[in-house]
Amino acid sequence: MSDEVRGEWPLYEVFVRGKRGLNHVHVGSLHAPDDAMAVRHARDVYTRRNEGVSIWVVRSDAITASSPDEKDPLFAPSGDKVYRHPTFYEIPDNVPHM
């Protein structure tokens, strides 16, 4: 993956269970080099380390999503990824109007 060459940490999605009895709910995302660090970052960033809170993290590129709309023209072949827009891919600086 191109972002690893540049050293940019991959994106993670963060899910928090606010208290017992509730579902984990998506609260946002962050960057981390790996899963273990992502959990730490999530505690720091999204709960300011509230104890007794359960956190899930998952790499954004590991999420498979349904199309929001059956008529989505990009339902296939790439509509199954969270990121689908061309700007997700590296484009050199000297290519105009991107």
């Binding site: 899910f15 928090v16 269970r17 606010g18 208290k19 509730l22 579902n23 984990h24 709910v25 998506h26 609260v27 709960t47 300011r48 380390r49 509230n50 809170v53």
Partner: peptide
């Protein structure tokens, strides 16, 4: 509904929140 908000229980009485 509080089930939609993970923060319902988080934002109360939490000394770590600014």
């Amino acid at each position: 509904d509080e089930h939609d908000s993970a923060y319902a229980g988080l934002l109360v009485n939490d000394a770590h929140w600014a």
